[in-house]
């Protein structure tokens, strides 16, 4: 680039400058997401119908642990998503560690459960949980995509992964309140696999999706 052209470019950009409002702090930006996403999942849970034994489940340590881990993943991945939506992550790169660590704990814990309780792998076919799970994650995922696009991510694939983790975890929690099947096999095939597939597709398209 010649000096002259660089000067022209800089002058052009400076001429185009309009006042901009800096994005709010990520913790503030994520609050409406959690409020709306939780209301949406809760509404869908009541629309689909609470599982009949939900009262007993709050005394079931295994169910509580599963729900707690997924809840933590949803919150931490949501927060990581919104930090990832600005180029320097506001210097808080550690925010991607909690969701990844918790996902690892969830995987190890599910493996131990499968070893002790049995996997009880269902026949691989489309069941209602798959469709309901996708519906439960759809609106949170869409909100996250719009939120990220209002920023400028420099890590589109990681951002997309955190998005699907947050939205998928919310959908998974919703399914734990509606689906009576507690086996690891069913949870993996019918509750998790759809999110993995959607996440893989979005991951491929992440760079185009979050292009700026």
């Amino acid at each position: 680039m010649s000096e002259q052209n660089l000067d022209k470019l800089i002058d052009g950009l400076a001429d185009d400058l309009a006042p901009v409002k800096p994005l709010a702090h990520p913790f503030i930006r994520i609050l409406p997401f959690f409020a709306i996403a939780l209301l949406y999942v809760a509404a869908l849970v009541f629309f689909v119908g609470l599982r009949p034994d939900i009262g007993n489940k709050f005394a079931d340590a295994s169910w509580m642990m599963e729900t707690f881990l997924m809840g933590f993943i949803a919150i931490s991945a949501g927060i990581a998503s919104v930090f990832l939506s600005v180029p320097d992550m506001r210097g808080e790169k550690w925010v991607i560690a909690p969701p990844l660590t918790t996902l690892g704990i969830f995987a190890v814990w599910s493996t131990f459960r499968a070893m002790s309780e049995g996997l009880h792998m269902p026949v691989l076919n489309m069941d209602h949980c798959m469709g309901e799970g996708v519906f439960m994650a759809a609106v949170p995922m869409t909100m996250l995509i719009f939120m990220i696009k209002s920023g400028a991510t420099t890590m589109p694939r990681l951002t997309c992964f955190m998005n699907i983790l947050a939205a998928g975890a919310l959908g998974y929690i919703g399914l734990r309140f509606t689906c009576i099947m507690d086996t690891v096999g069913h949870a993996t095939v019918s509750h998790l696999v759809p999110y993995v597939l959607i996440g893989a597709l979005l991951g491929i398209a992440a760079k185009k999706l979050y292009k700026w």
């Binding site: 800096p22 702090h25 180029p87 320097d88 400028a152």
Partner: peptide, 29 residues
């Protein structure tokens, strides 16, 4: 690349947080 970075800085100026140093933000871009 310099040209693309300058245009990117222009497009994403709203993502810079004034309470943070500018350089890490620029380097990420």
């Amino acid at each position: 690349i310099s040209q693309e970075v300058l245009i990117s800085v222009h497009k994403s100026l709203n993502t810079y947080s004034p309470d943070r140093p500018f350089r890490p933000w620029l380097m990420a871009i």
